[in-house]
Simulated assay, not measured.
Amino acid sequence: MDLSEAVYKLTVDFPNSELFGLTNQLRRASVSTASNIAEGYGKCTRGEYVQFLGHARGSNFEVQTQLMLPKRLKFGSDQHRQNAERLSDEVSRMLVAIMTKLRK
Rank of each mutant, 00 (worst) to 15 (best):
D2F: 03
D2Y: 03
S4K: 10
S4P: 08
E5V: 09
A6G: 04
A6D: 00
V7S: 02
L10V: 05
L10E: 00
L10A: 07
T11C: 06
T11S: 07
T11W: 00
V12H: 03
V12D: 05
F14L: 05
P15R: 02
N16M: 08
N16R: 08
S17A: 13
S17E: 08
S17L: 03
S17P: 01
S17V: 07
L19E: 12
L19A: 12
F20S: 07
G21I: 01
L22N: 03
L22I: 10
N24W: 15
Q25V: 09
L26S: 05
L26Y: 02
R28E: 04
A29P: 00
A29T: 04
A29N: 01
S30A: 13
V31Q: 05
T33R: 02
A34W: 13
A34R: 08
S35E: 10
S35Q: 12
N36S: 03
N36P: 02
I37D: 00
A38R: 15
A38S: 11
A38Q: 14
A38F: 14
E39Y: 08
E39R: 04
E39G: 02
G42I: 11
G42K: 06
G42H: 05
G42P: 15
K43L: 12
K43E: 12
C44P: 05
C44Y: 14
C44H: 13
T45E: 07
R46Y: 12
R46H: 13
E48W: 06
V50D: 06
V50A: 08
F52E: 07
F52N: 07
L53Q: 00
G54D: 01
H55Y: 07
H55R: 10
A56C: 09
R57A: 11
R57F: 14
G58Y: 05
G58F: 01
G58D: 05
N60H: 03
F61P: 03
E62S: 09
E62T: 13
E62A: 01
E62H: 01
V63E: 00
V63Y: 00
Q64M: 10
Q64I: 06
Q64W: 04
Q64K: 07
T65G: 12
L67W: 02
L67G: 00
M68P: 08
P70A: 07
K71F: 06
K71S: 11
K71Q: 11
L73K: 09
L73P: 11
F75Y: 11
G76T: 01
G76V: 04
S77M: 04
D78Q: 13
D78N: 13
Q79A: 15
H80L: 10
R81Q: 05
Q82F: 10
Q82H: 15
A84C: 10
E85D: 14
R86F: 14
R86Y: 11
S88T: 06
D89N: 13
D89R: 09
D89V: 09
V91W: 05
V91E: 10
V91H: 00
S92A: 14
R93S: 11
M94E: 06
M94F: 10
M94G: 07
M94C: 12
V96S: 03
V96E: 03
I98G: 00
I98V: 09
I98S: 02
M99K: 05
M99T: 14
T100M: 03
T100E: 10
T100Q: 02
K101E: 09
K101Y: 09
L102I: 00
R103G: 10
K104R: 14
